[in-house]
């Protein structure tokens, strides 16, 4: 009794509230954009961390040279030599850091090119994919015709077309299965009516 009243009350309130705001037409595009951004962020974090570590390493290399040896009493010549040596060391370290960075950039570029190369699909595969997609679309539409629109004959025709056009595909198997299901259900209905 109370349950029915609560149900009625909730349903009336739901009717009063009206429907939710209409879904924007570009929802799928927005969702995809956000997914790409998230994937990029997932990749960017470790790269940024590696860059910070590298920069810290570079700074440590540059500042790690002992400075207290530079000023010893009355040994200007020795100091100058030492300074030159230090400069040479600094240059060498900088060169090394540059080389490491350049190498890293090169590796990154190679990885990018490899990924690009891998992403280029084989034309045969692409054709196969398109064929598969077409077969799927036909099966999907046939399912809708049969299940939602009650167009049994058109659905059967479409399933037959899938079997005829794409006999080797997995969707042809699905179509065969659906056809036999429809036939069974019709046979059962006829049997019952007799």
């Amino acid at each position: 009794m109370t349950e029915d009243k609560i149900k009625n009350l909730l349903q009336k309130a739901d009717k009063t509230a009206g429907t939710a705001a209409p879904i924007p037409a570009n929802l799928a595009a927005d969702v995809r954009r956000r997914a790409n951004r998230r994937r990029f962020a997932t990749l960017a974090a470790p790269v940024a961390a590696a860059a910070v570590v590298l920069i810290a390493f570079g700074i440590w290399c540059l500042t790690g040279v002992p400075a207290d040896q530079m000023y010893e009493q009355g040994k200007v010549a020795a100091l100058q030599a030492e300074i030159k040596q230090l400069q040479a060391q600094t240059d060498a370290t900088l060169k090394l850091v540059r080389e490491v960075l350049e190498n890293q950039r090169r590796q990154h570029r190679i990885a990018k090119l490899k990924a690009k190369l891998a992403s280029i699909t084989d034309p045969l595969e692409e054709v196969q994919r398109q064929v598969d997609k077409t077969a799927f679309t036909l099966v999907y539409e046939a399912n809708r015709m049969y299940g939602e629109l009650n167009q049994r004959d058109s659905a059967i025709q479409t399933y037959k077309r899938v079997i005829e056009l794409f006999p080797q595909s997995t969707w042809a198997d699905v179509a065969r299965r659906r056809l036999s299901e429809i036939r069974n259900s019709s046979a059962n209905k006829n049997g019952l009516s007799i």
Binding site: Y140, N143, G147, E148, V174, N184, S185, N188, L192
Partner: peptide, 24 residues
């Protein structure tokens, strides 16, 4: 009869569609 009904029911069809969509 039950089998035929469940196969032809919208819920059953809907599940097949969902499966197809996810697979695709």
């Amino acid at each position: 009869e039950t089998n035929a009904k469940s196969l032809a029911s919208p819920a059953h069809n809907n599940n097949i569609d969902d499966e197809l969509l996810a697979k695709q």
